[in-house]
Amino acid sequence: MPKNKLCEIDHDKSVTTDQTQADSGRTHKMAPFIEVANLSKSYQRDGFEIPVLDGMDISVEKGGYLALMGPSGSGKSTLLNIIAGIDRPSKGTVKIGDTEITSLNESKLAKWRANNIGFVFQFYNLIPVLTAFDNVALPLLLTKLSKAERKKHVETALNIVGLGDRMKHYPKQLSGGQEQRVAIARAIVTDPQIIVADEPTGDLDKTSADEILVLLQRLNQEFDKTIIMVTHDPHAAETAKTILHLEKGELVEETE
């Protein structure tokens, strides 16, 4: 079944990337799209080394939907952050598409994130002084798109999440579920390959949480987005195609 495109964003035009687009996944469906190899991460606290991840190996196919579960401190958020390029491992590599992101410098990594990753946070993290429209438009400010093109993309993204009529609303004028949907619109507005979500339903009531989960499933199935989600909620995890259980920085179980 052919997959829908969210927006027709030409990334060459939108972001001055060094062709780190994760294109390989588009042509080789069954090849690993995200490859995490021998990944370790430890923190230094008060002179002590605290291991968080230890020799992790994971691979995710293009269009995969992965849920990371585990108790607090198991390393799932750290793993998510490293895959998303907002944290760096102590050892090991992360390859997404053709790009080994662990070898990119900060500047290139920032551009790579802008083109390839959409973030959804537990507490939405919208800018309170900006309207829903302006919040969603934020990532597009880094592109060379014209004002009219940006407007078109923002409207498309907000319509996909069902908030086309709330564009001029500020975050405080929206419910938690609506705020999270605006955050999802912001995550998809640049048409990234991967969406990472850290406890996206953690701050929502059941109804709103279900709406968000349905939306994420739709993004995965209709728009072919690769999704990695950290969650404590087994019900949320069940919506994913694959569930990884982590404990003390190690992968203990994989459920299809």
Binding site: A110, N115, L142
Partner: peptide
Amino acid sequence: TREYAVLKTLGFSVPK
């Protein structure tokens, strides 16, 4: 602090 982190996450560089 969190907002700036979010901006960085979205791809905003330190100069921006």
